[in-house]
Design a protein around this nucleic acid. Structure first.
Lengths: 353, 353
DNA sequence: TTGTATGCGTTATCAT
DNA sequence: ATGATAACGCATACAA
């Protein structure tokens, strides 16, 4: 075990532990002479300061925690990467935790973080199962404890925490306008789970975009998924069986889109011809698909940077304004003109399940 | 800030801090009476033990760190998920760190971990840039310090650390045999960066499989990528321009495959007809592709579990044997009979770049 | 069973 | 500029 303490270094350097500490932690009041001796000794012995003891005394850890809801979702791993890179640039360590879309695991991580006295926390918040907007007791305590917290991607209605979120309104308006222009009127929506504020926001923005474009809102064209591939596959089958035979679909995240596109491939649906597809999250796989899928993308690295900036502001005692990023719509060949003409009135059965 | 210490709890409960400590850390020698009082007081005050101080005293943190080389690679995020779930089941917290395929960032994380006295570390090791197999000084110190370490996925030749790795030999033998059976003789390989032991292992196993199946080893059919999508795209273009016009290709990971398949789609290459494709890593996107791509997959959750098991063994003072997982080949419609006949002797130009 | 006292490794305070 | 010493929050050896 590593038993080399600052005392060992001090002894080897022939100075007091106080002087050694000052040298090693960059305190100005040190003579070049002792600085040289201490540094040499520390290097010689391979001294590594004990962060536990250090932060026990100085109540600073230079560490933040990042809690995401699903490591395996590329959306969040991109976000994690962005946060981690920005924090790294500012000399801050990031611990990444995975809530696994489970509020119990979220609480475990929060407890561990609180107990480990990280300087701050960036998290994708999660309400309790049924009561989507109510923060868990653990989360309440975390906030009450005064630990700097920033929400990213999602927010919790009643909770006063600076949040970095994304608005899909503009992008969806553009997307729906494009679809309408191509003659689509029956547009399905495969959405996320209600407990995620992003899922609700996307759903709301979708309805608003329909309305803004003079299309009817038809809740029977909405499928409630859970942001994971399996539910996307279920949504795809649901769409194929749908009596209204929608000609276009918007999918609320990439894993669901991949699940859905797999089902449609198996069913022989010609994407872009028979069915126009738009998905949230611009992942590489969407460009690999033939035809490439139109996407609504977020500025993940911007959001990551903003989250770190907001957190450092909170740590400095300020109250940063919530920030909202605008999503971006990119049209690709997965869209084409809807089949039109009189036949539509009969309800052309185009898809077989 | 959270200033509630065990003393506050003790005072509120009307006992000494020692008794409070015993109750809160589950020590047997406590009376039901004081247990009740202390627990009530702790809950009342919202007491959260300071892990820093606790582990400063007890030198145990119930925390391990997991260092992966790229959070955004689904292979590693799946692995992270597996490790994290297994550790969670054993009551151990996992901190995930991202080396970003950069040995300097790896060192930063190692230093932070060492200094923070985690109980153990599971890592995907990375040699220094040029000298792939030489561990960095930081890594050497980490190991020398006695901190329990386990390598997963990759290993470092000279370094004596228990490693959980995967063997592609069997899967590649099967894959190459299948290709040969379909008439393929010019099989290209888009490999990973030499600094990753997995990249070297896959390359070796590929060559061995060719040999075992009586095919020539032709190094000009090997393209050196870096496990990222961009290099896969470059590899795809390289293949299209290759004078030997290979009829099949094996790609060493999913991101490169996605990059490559995107280029081939743009170039109008009929996958499965003109070019047979096999890739490492069975990610959902490969099943979405039309036709679905044949894969060589690893038992990531098995490897994750094994890594945690090996680490707990090391922490218990044992020396677990290295473990090697067998990869699995799954044939899908991305393979078909090679174009045969006399025309081949002319070097049929099938691809245009 | 409980309380008192000490130490974990470091930094901050106060002298010098 | 440096050294002696207290203090951070907790767990434990020892005494009661």
């Amino acid at each position: 075990m590593n038993a080399i303490t600052i005392k060992d270094v001090a002894k080897a350097a022939g100075v007091s532990s106080a002087t050694a500490s000052r040298v090693l932690s960059g305190h100005p009041a040190t003579s070049p002479a002792s600085r040289a001796k201490v540094e040499a000794a520390a290097k010689e012995l391979g001294f590594v300061p004990n962060a536990q003891a250090r932060s026990l005394r100085s109540t600073k850890t230079d560490t933040i925690a990042l809690l995401i809801s699903d490591v395996r979702n590329p959306y969040f791993s991109d976000l994690a990467h962005a946060v981690e890179q920005q924090a790294h640039a500012e000399g801050i360590m990031t611990f990444i935790g995975n809530a696994n879309e489970d509020s119990a695991q979220q609480d475990d991580f929060l407890a561990a973080m609180l107990s480990r006295r990280v300087d701050g926390l960036i998290m994708v918040p999660q309400g309790l199962g049924e009561d989507a907007e109510r923060p868990s007791g653990m989360l309440q305590r975390l906030i009450a404890s005064g630990t700097p917290v920033v929400f990213v991607d999602r927010s919790l209605a009643g909770v006063q925490v600076p949040s970095i979120t994304a608005s899909s309104t503009e992008a969806l308006n553009e997307a729906i306008a494009t679809l309408k222009h191509l003659g689509h009127e029956k547009i399905a929506f495969i959405g996320g789970p209600d407990h995620a504020s992003t899922a609700r926001e996307r759903h709301r923005a979708f309805d608003a975009a329909l309305e803004a474009n003079g299309l009817d809102i038809d809740e029977s064209l909405h499928f409630a998924g859970d942001f994971k591939a399996g539910s996307g596959a279920r949504g795809a089958r649901w769409l194929l069986d749908h009596p209204a035979a929608p000609t276009a679909v918007v999918i609320a995240d990439a894993p669901m889109a991949i699940g859905a596109l797999t089902v449609w491939r198996e069913a022989g649906v010609a994407i872009g011809q028979e069915l126009s597809v738009i998905t949230f999250d611009e992942v590489d796989a969407m460009l690999m698909h033939d035809p490439p899928i139109s996407t609504i993308s977020h500025d993940l690295s911007g959001m990551g940077r903003a989250a770190v900036a907001a957190l450092t502001a909170v740590m400095a005692g300020q109250s940063p304004e919530p920030e909202e990023f605008i999503s971006h719509f990119t049209q690709r060949e997965s869209l084409s003109r809807a089949r039109t003409g009189a036949a539509k009135m009969e309800g052309t059965p185009t898809h077989e399940s």
